[in-house]
Each structure stands twice: as structure tokens, then as C-alpha cells.
Design a protein around this nucleic acid. Structure first.
Lengths: 207, 207, 207, 207
DNA sequence: CATGAATGAGGGTTCATTCAT
DNA sequence: GATGAATGAACCCTCATTCAT
């Protein structure tokens, strides 16, 4: 008599994705072998085929899962002031980078790094684009609010904010957190925001 | 009668590194297997062991080779005006990204993306750091020249210029060149430079 | 329709060990490659990894298996009279040596001879020691029975009996059975036993 | 101008054999690869082919070399009293076993252990036989001298003395020197000798 | 829904051997 | 007589995948 009840199909699938994400964070896409993932889940690897037709499909679903979580983060950082919202998004990213036990930012770049033969980059780029579009929407909202200068190109701003996050991630990935510090990262973000924010909300630039 | 003459040790080593770099550019670090590299060179894979004691040593030598080439690029972009020098470095990088047949920028990021189990990230980060230091030196030169505001933090500026390059590279890697265009990349660079450059040389910011 | 039914885990494991033992007997430890063993079993070599985590673990399990069998032989030779028991053990060994189709004695020495880089000698020595201890126990039993002189050093006797077996094995291994005959082997054993046995049971020494 | 003169063919050959013997002692027959041997000699491995047509021929020559050295040891232990001579031979062997830096006894057994596919055992057995014959000759000399009982079978005695040495060697090989001590080894030898020696020269047996 | 057994392709590495120089 | 470059076969090991149960 098993006290631990059989998981439903959906629950199992979610569990697998969570474990897979952790595995990618710790061992990279390459290290996310079926054996490793299944071991984390506590099942045998052929059982994974009951949920995903192939490893690649699992990884694609994982990208979905990952971007869902990131988008939740972006949504959670919402503030009525668009500039503050962007700042919140940037800080959320920076905070995650500093917390390597988190399984969200690091796997993000692990996917960027996923070898070309995994055929994942295209899919990944498309999601990334959607993320940037979301940021651009925030910029546009700021322009409607009047907190962001109307002349600014929303996409350009969005990409730059996004790029700040990338820089953080890459630096962390390469063990350069001691040099590209959270402080410098924040200063770069403020710089970008400050140069387009109107009024008193914009911190002065000091480089 | 073989028309292809026997290569000398140094020639062969150089050839292997060139081929390996192309292979990394096309198939990633993971795809740079001994079989693939040897096939590109036109020899059998055990022959590689006559030149490198192991695959990892080959990859480490490749990182050396790669950074040598990048540093040459940076040096080649030299201009007496430090701001112009930084701009040249940024543009050189952007130009390379647009020319995917070049085997220099893409492999760069392939290494960033190299799976953790390859154990290359540490080594790579150290080289990266040296590169940033080089950029910071240019900034300091600009400060001595008076073309860069004295108040600026050279390391901060250096990292930001470097980060511009990263953004270009990653975007290209993910097939987003259509969105993160050369124009936007240039604008971001000008932004960074403009905000620290003194005098008329600094383009006005318009985002 | 496969007529050969799928084997259970335990059956397969046992079969692999049996085949491996034969392989060691015929081709030595070095010749006991995964390919060779798997071929004998009738499977492909990666399948072996489902049963043993590595070749070395397989070989260690094989040593277990081998000593189990030898200890069974020693136990099977039991006689109440300790001297007779020792004689039985010695004769059992000699008999095996003469029957090369047996896969027990020969592999024994193959392990002794296993190249140092296999790292098996230590483990093997420990088992060997246990075997000698078992013989020493028989000697002590004889001393309690009064069939073996009390003054004798049990360990010394045990080692000497064991050494008789070694001599047989090595001679067989080197194809010298024509010179170190079963008769001479028996005479050496009697010599050892005779010199410590009390009473009429001890055959006269004639060399 | 090389101050170290070119070695003559014979000198080089001897040097190679000496180095090869050390290599076998330290790393076994399997570890005696052409690369390892050549490295010890200070030349490159293809150069070995100038002296031996193949690795196997080198190993066969090495067996010659090894037995020559052992026979020298036996000769050096010569004493007019045959029993003393045999005792000297046994002690010489035991002494060597205790001195692992010596490259004579250990390689001996490394060859016994040489995997069957090396095809060396036959050759090795023949040499071994010659060695035993030499011991038997000493026994016969003792019988003529009257120091060994006439009734003894010279071959039997010779094999037993030889077997004592084997036991020492194997025990050392398996790291059991702590249990099969030099003292026990000596006692076993005295036992054998004592049981065939006549007169006062024979130590009393005490087991 | 899950498992256990097995596979085939591929990975890095080592080694005896050949041959032009 | 010796070298440097290269080869081909073999080794151990890993992994995604299949399939009967």
C-alpha cells in the first residue's frame, strides 16, 4: 500500500520540468541527460518517454516553462510607474544572478549556450524576442504616462535593458561576479533608464 | 606520390587550431569532437594526440589562439583619440558579427556557452577579464587626454563597452540580428561613449 | 519470435560472471575485455553496464565469485580428521589443475598475475589471506584433536599447504605439468603434512 | 658537439633491456609499452625498432636477459657444500623479494602473470625448467658429496626449493609480506633442506 | 503508467606499427 | 641509427532510444 499517491499526468509533467530545469542549471543542457533528469524525479528514464516523445521535445517544453517563469517575474515586478517597473525587472534579474541556487537565470544562459546541434537556439530566440517586446510595451506605457521621453525608441530601450540582464548573466556564468558587481550592474541600468526618464524620477548620471 | 607535402609541426598545429576554431563556430564546443576536427584537417583523430595531449588541452590552446586574434583586432583599431579607439573596437566587433563566415566572434560565444562539464569557463573568464582591463586602459588614456570625463569609472565604462559587444554576439547567436540591428548596436555604443566623452567629439544622445 | 527468453537480472548477472571467469581463464585478466565477455554472453557490451557500473567492478565481483567457489571446494573437502581435511583440500586443488577445462584454478592465478595497473592485487591478496586463515583454522582443529603436533605454528603450516597449491598452479600455467607432476605435488603435500602429523596417520617421508 | 658519445649497437641494446626490465618491474608487462621504455632510455619509440623487430621480440630478449641475471645470482651463491649452496640460493631470492627496488625478482613474476595473449609463457616456462635443472644438479652434487641423502629425488628437491622462492614472490606481489614473513620463508626452506640433508649440517625441524 | 533489458552510435584515449625524411 | 607524423585497431564508457513485459 503506497502512501504516496500516484501523480496525475499533469503533476508528473510539471515535476519533470522542474527537475529538468534544476538539472540544466547545475549541469548545463548537455548534462541534462535523461538519466540525470529521471534520477532527480525518482523514476527510470524510459518513463520519461511516457510524457515527452523525445529528449528534444522535453527541452523545448522546458524552454516554454522557463519563459513562463521569467514572464511571471516580469509581471510580479509591475509598478504603475513604467520606469520603476523596468527598474524592478532589472533588479529582479540581478538579484537572481546573485542567488545561484535559483534555477531560473542560470539555465536561461545555459540554453543560449546550448550547442547548435541541439536545434534549440531558434526556438529560444523567438521567446527572447517576445520578452523584449514585453519590455518595449512597458516603455510605451511610460511614454503614454509621460515618464519616458517620447522621442525614445521603445525597442532600443527594451533591448538595452535586456542587454543589462545579459551582461549580468554572462559575467556570473564566467565567474566574474567579483568584477562585474551588482553595484556596477545597477549603475548601468540606472544609466539607461536615466537617459530616457523624464522629471525627478531619473537619478543623475555619474558614471 | 602524394602531392600534399608533409606539414611541419608548427604548421600542423596552426592548421589544427584554425580548423578547430571553424568547427567551434559551426558546431559549438560540444561539436568540436576530435573526429570532426581531424576530418576538417584531413587526418585521423589519433594524429591529433601528436600535437595536443588531450582534447581539453586543444580547447585551451584554442582559447589562447582566439584571444590572441581578438587582441589583435583591438590593437588594430587603435586611434590616438581614446574615444575613437573605443568606438573602433566596438564597430570592429559589430562588423564581425555581421560576417558570420568569420570564425572569430561566434566561437567566442560558443565558449561562453560551453557546457559546465567542459571546465573551460574559468579559463575563459580570466581571458575575458584581461580584455576588459585593456579597454579600461584605453578609458584611462582618454582621461589623461581629457577626452573622457575624469569622474568616470574606467572599469565601469570598459565593462559597458564590452557588454555592448556581448549583446551583439548573443543576438547574432540566437538569430535575432533582424531585431537587434547594427544600427541599434551602434546607437547603444554611442550612448555609452557619449555619456562620458567630453567636448564636441561626443555625439548628442537621442536614444 | 525469439525462442531465447529474456533472462532475469540475477540470472544474467550470474551468467556474466561465469562467462567472465571462463574468459579470464582462457585469455587472462587483460583479455577479459568488455567486448570479449559480452560476446561470450551473447549480448553487446554496453548491456554489461546494466549489471556492473564499470569493468573494474565486474572484475571485483568476479574475485568474490571465484573465492566463493574456492571456499566451497575447501568446505566440500571436509573430513573430521584435520590432517585428512588438509590432504583433501590439497588434492582437490591438484585435481583441478589437471582439469584445465575447469574455470576455477586457472583464473585464480590469472588474477595473481593481473597487471599492476588493474589495481586488483590488493583486493585479491586480502581474499587470499582469508583462505590461508581458513587453513590455519583446520590446523588448529587438528591440534585440538591431537592429530597435529601442538608445537607446530598453524599459520606456517597453512601457508605451506597453500604454497603447495600455488606451485601446482604456476607450473600448470607455464606448461610445466610434465615436470611438476601430480605425483610430485602429492609427495610435497604429504611431506608437509607428515612432518606435523602425529601418530600412524602420517605417511613416512621418503622424498 | 655532444659530449655524450653515441652508444654502440650492443651498448644501446643492453641499455634498452635494462630500462625495459625496470619498467616491467614497476608497471608490469602490460605497462612496458614502447613509449614508456623509450622514454626511460631517452630516445623516441620508433628508434626501438632499430634494435628489435617488434615489441614481442623485445620481451623475449628481455626474458633471456632476466634469466641470465638470475643464473648469475645462483652461480654467485655457490658454496662447496651443496646444501649450503641451495640455502644461499634460497636466501638470495628472499633477500631480493624484500628489496623491491631490485628489478629482478618482481619482473620475474610479472612475466608469469603476463597475459596469455603475449605468447610469452611457453618461452618462460622453458627457462624456468632450465633453472630447476640447475638446482637439481646442485642436489646431485650434494648426493655425490654425501651431504644429501642418496634416496632423495633430485628433481623433487629442486622443485621444492624453487617453490619456496615462488611462494615468497607471490606473497610479495600480493602485498602479503606482513604475513608470509622472511622468517617463515626461511623456516620453510630449512624444512625442505633439513629433511634431505645428512649429518650435522641439517638444522632440526621444529615447524 | 512504468520498468528492465538491450541496442547502436558516438565519445576520448592508448598503443604497436609504418614510413618518408 | 634516429626522428616526426600518421595510422588503424582496440579499449572503456555514455547516452538516446526501443520494446516486451
Amino acid at each position: 500500500m503506497q502512501t504516496r499517491r500516484r501523480l496525475s499526468r499533469e503533476e508528473r509533467r510539471g515535476q519533470i520540468l522542474r527537475v529538468a530545469l534544476e538539472t540544466v542549471a547545475k549541469q548545463g543542457v548537455r548534462g541534462a541527460t535523461l538519466t540525470n533528469i529521471a534520477a532527480g524525479v525518482g523514476i527510470t528514464y524510459p518513463a520519461l518517454y511516457a510524457h515527452f516523445p523525445s529528449r528534444k521535445d522535453l527541452l523545448l517544453a522546458l524552454i516554454d516553462h522557463l519563459f513562463d517563469r521569467i514572464q511571471q517575474l516580469h509581471a510580479a515586478a509591475y509598478q504603475e510607474d513604467a520606469v520603476a517597473h523596468l527598474r524592478g525587472i532589472g533588479r529582479a534579474n540581478a538579484a537572481l544572478v546573485g542567488a545561484p541556487e535559483d534555477d531560473c537565470v542560470l539555465p536561461f544562459f545555459e540554453f543560449v549556450a546550448a550547442e547548435p546541434d541541439e536545434d534549440l537556439r531558434g526556438e529560444f530566440g523567438a521567446r527572447q524576442l517576445a520578452l523584449v517586446e514585453g519590455l518595449a510595451d512597458v516603455v510605451r506605457r511610460g511614454q503614454r504616462q509621460g515618464t519616458i521621453v517620447a522621442i525614445a525608441d521603445p525597442e532600443q530601450i527594451a533591448w538595452m535593458v535586456h542587454g543589462c540582464g545579459w551582461t549580468d548573466d554572462i559575467a556570473a556564468l564566467m565567474g566574474l561576479s567579483g568584477h562585474w558587481t551588482a553595484e556596477r550592474s545597477a549603475r548601468m541600468l540606472e544609466w539607461v533608464l536615466g537617459s530616457v526618464a523624464t522629471g525627478a524620477g531619473a537619478p543623475a548620471q555619474e558614471a
